[in-house]
Amino acid sequence: MDIKEILKKFWFVLLIAVVFVAFIVMYAVDYFNNKPVEITAKEENGQYLIYSIGDQKYTADDLYADLEDAYGTVTLYREFDRLVCDKAISTTSEMENIATNQAAALLQTYSEDELNPQLQALGFSGVDELSDYYIYLQKSLQLRTDYLKEHYDEYVAPYIEENHPKVISHILVKVADVEKVTNEDGTTSYVANPTEEEQEKLNLILEDLKVKSFADVAKEYSDDTSASNGGLLGYFDDTNTTYVEVFRNTTKTLGEGETSEVITSEYGYHIIYCNSENVDDLYGYNDFINAIYGEDVVLYNAPLLEKAKELGITIDNEKLKNSLMEQIAKQEESEGE
């Protein structure tokens, strides 16, 4: 067979081959054009160099000293906290599941490029350790929760006494036409002018609440996004400023298992239910734990230092250790002012 015959017989195969080769060449060119530059380390007189400029050298030790000055305390604190939490609390499969779900949810919102620098600054290698980061957060919270449980009389009981924490749920019936009224004493209240449909919905809810659980009724009727979760809003205490005033004032009066009267806000009708005031339930809410620690840096670090002592984990570098302790003391001082 001569060339002509081969071309005639296998023209399609040859065409595919040419296209295939072209793709490979294009890919190779693109790869080499965008290939990351690989930097080779250099050692001189027993010191690794970061860079040289003219006859001036900047060594790894110089960089270490400068970075220790700039970020040493905060980086050491993170690492110490992470190591102590890891040693103090075993990873459970439940923690792993929660962390995996949280990581997946975050990755749906942010790209790897956005998350990597933030995770690296927190001492993690990048998104490949995103689940580890969430496990660490759970351990850190548990460490601090366990500490509060052990020091109930000292910290938890006074907080409960003062701020009446509770877990709450609510049902919302949205009313389109709500009138704002200024009362004689200068306070504001709201008067709803419901449509027939809105009023009927409220009536149905009130009837159903007599025979069904609050969560079931909320799930069936509530116009709030919490409906799918049985109306559960979660943690609430007297320091809350998130909800509208009438809602806050009503919630404050509720004891465990109590349901409020129908109240009116600019959003419509609300019925609020107090699920629990039991401290064991409250421990499950980050907001409760964070509220007790508040901005008390010394208290926040007490579980860490106590557990580290118990485990025999120490910071061996005196300079860094002193700097960290000074920093904690300084923060406490500035918050006390």
């Binding site: 790894a60 960089l63 270490y64 400068d66 970075l67 220790e68 700039a70 970020y71 040493g72 980086t75 050491l76 993170r78 690492e79 110490f80 190591l83 040693k87 620098p117 690296q120 600054a121 001492g123 580290a308 485990l311 025999g312 984990i313 120490t314 910071i315 061996d316 570098n317 860094l320």
Partner: peptide, 25 residues
């Protein structure tokens, strides 16, 4: 050189250096 140690932990100066380098410096 150890920076943090105890209970099977040995966090070295080199590891600390790598952590420090994770910051945008």
């Amino acid at each position: 050189t150890s920076i943090i140690s105890g209970d099977g932990v040995n966090f070295t100066k080199q590891e600390f250096f790598e952590r420090l380098k994770n910051n945008d410096y």
